[in-house]
Every structure is written in structure tokens, then in C-alpha cells.
Design a binder for these strands. Sequence first.
DNA 1: AATTAGCCGACTGTTTTAGTAGGTTAAATA
DNA 2: TATTTAACCTACTAAAACAGTCGGCTAATT
Lengths: 166, 166
Amino acid sequence: MRLTTKGRYAVTAMLDLALHAGKGPISLADISERQGISLSYLEQLFAKLRRSELVRSVRGPGGGYQLSRDQVHINVAEVIDAVNESVDATGCHGSGDCQSGETCLTHHLWCDLSEQIHAFLSSISLLDLVQRKDVQLVAKRQDRRYVDQLIMSTGEKTSADRKAAV
Amino acid sequence: MRLTTKGRYAVTAMLDLALHAGKGPISLADISERQGISLSYLEQLFAKLRRSELVRSVRGPGGGYQLSRDQVHINVAEVIDAVNESVDATGCHGSGDCQSGETCLTHHLWCDLSEQIHAFLSSISLLDLVQRKDVQLVAKRQDRRYVDQLIMSTGEKTSADRKAAV
DNA sequence: AATTAGCCGACTGTTTTAGTAGGTTAAATA
DNA sequence: TATTTAACCTACTAAAACAGTCGGCTAATT
């Protein structure tokens, strides 16, 4: 089992999509900007997320990605799974042939652990995350910074422009 | 976070020690034989287990390793920790400076997960494992095979010899 | 003196991670 | 219609970790 930036990036990016849902497709460039994840790396992750039918893509200008299902029906476990980061803690992938065809001494322990982790992560939907206070706080900060960046680059000045940009 | 053969081997080896406690020091060669783990690799792992004061060593013939504490007072989490396989799921080791000094969108989620896993693994002692039915079954099988191997190599034949070997 | 078994450091092939680079294709817009 | 946008795809890479090997050394027992 492993949980590295790969799985964390995937969940973070999916949560970014969830937070900005209903505003049309979100480009990977936007997610890259807001979440500080390399664009090329995001592309690789979204290729997998798309294959697992967790997101839909829209090509061309104004295009990007959208969640393919309701936020309630996407949980953290399946997002991590989609980018090939198994939540399985056994060495035999649950088959029980860990020690030359037979069950090793600690097989059941790792099965229990895997179950525990999976139960926890699959019980958390994107909607749950979106509704969390701490997530909303970070999201607000990121959005503010994102808009500021936008204004800087386009040279707009007034607070009316600022609002228009959002 | 990662949980690979390294951490699994460590727990398995410690459980082997626990199962054969009270019979004097257990050599790594014995553990290697019973659990199917490379002897040299075990040596590396036990160097770390010793540094964490989870085991005591006895040198010379008849030497080996023993648990340095009671089985009730050694839990799975600290064994995994001893061989440098952190149970931490955050990328910032819990500090919260995940995204260029500030908290990332999913920081609290990974904190919760880490807590969950740690609570689970630290709630399981070696004694708990020793008392499990499935562990006892596998242990019995391994011991039988171990004795058979011993008889084969020493050329003893009768069931009296078999008993004497144990 | 010889054997046992812990101790120690260096070295190795393989896999994964995290990312880069360079290009192609589909759709919208000027 | 030409240009731009942004998805899509393949290949490559440095660095790290994993899992294990090898050779030699030291302490204790027989």
C-alpha cells in the first residue's frame, strides 16, 4: 500500500472541480494554478480519472473537466484507486498466498487494516469535503489569490473589474 | 505513507518472537526459515528494531533476539514506525505547510486518515495477535514444517526424536 | 581453537515517483 | 478561414525507495 502525492493530488484536483462545479468546465491550467500542481502531471492523472469515468472532458477553448457524477456519489477511495494507488495493505492483494502459496502469519492483520482504511475513505464523498469548514476556508483563500493573479496579468484595476473577473 | 514488505516483515518477525517467547533467544536464522524472509534483510530490520528498543539481542552460540518488553506493551504501530515506514498520510508530516507554506485543500483529510490508521494499529498489541485463532493456526503449520525440516537435515527418524527436536 | 550468531557497511537491480518535453487533435472565436 | 485554446498522447528522465546480496568483523559459547 502507498499513499503519496499522486493520490493526494488526484483527490485535491477532484475537490477543486467539486468546489467550482456549476460554472462550466474547469481547465487543468486553473487547477494547476490554484492547487500548485504541475500541469503536465495533472494531465496524466486526469487521463486515469477519465478512464475510470469520474470526470468528463470538454475540448477546445472554454473547455476543461467536470465531475461525471453528483458530488455525493464520488468518494475518496475510488479517486485514489483510479490513479493506481491501491488502498490494499496486503502483499498478496488479498488472495492469501503470501508465503509460497500459503497464508503468512500476519495476513489477516493486513486484511483488517485494508478494510479499515477502505471503509474510512469510501465513507467520505466529495460533497462531505466541500461542506467542511476547513476546506471552505482554504478554498476561499485560493480563489482570492487566483483572482488577484488574474487581475495582475490582465492589468485591470478597479474592484468592479475584480468582481467581473469572478 | 507506505506499507510494503518492509513493515510487514518487521511485524511478522516480531510476532514470531512473541509466539516463541519463553524459550530463550530466537535466532534470525530460525525466523528466516519459518517466515521465509531473507536472513540479511532481517538483520537490517532488527538493527532498527534494536535501536528502537523493541528487542534485546544475545550474541554467540544459542544467542538471538527477545522482545524487550511484555507482549501487551508492544503494538503494531510502533513496530512499523521503527523500520521507518511512517503511518503518516500527509505530505507535510502533519505540519500543515503543504502548499508553499500554507495548508493545502486536503490537509485535514489526510490528518484524519493518519489518525484513523494510527489509532487502529496502535490498538493492536503483539499479545492480541498471538491470541488470534488464525495466527495460531498458521503458527502451528510453520512450526510443524520447521521441525520436519530439522529432522530431514539431522537424519533423525523416530517420533521420539521429533519430539526431542522441539 | 572452532563455531555460532549478532553486527556493520557497501553495493546492486528493479520499480515507482514526480515531473518534463514535444507533439497531435478537437472545438470555439476573431 | 486562420488562430487560439485546451484536451490528449507518448516518450523520456532524475531521484528515491525497495528488497536483497555480499563480505567481513566481533562477542560469546563449546
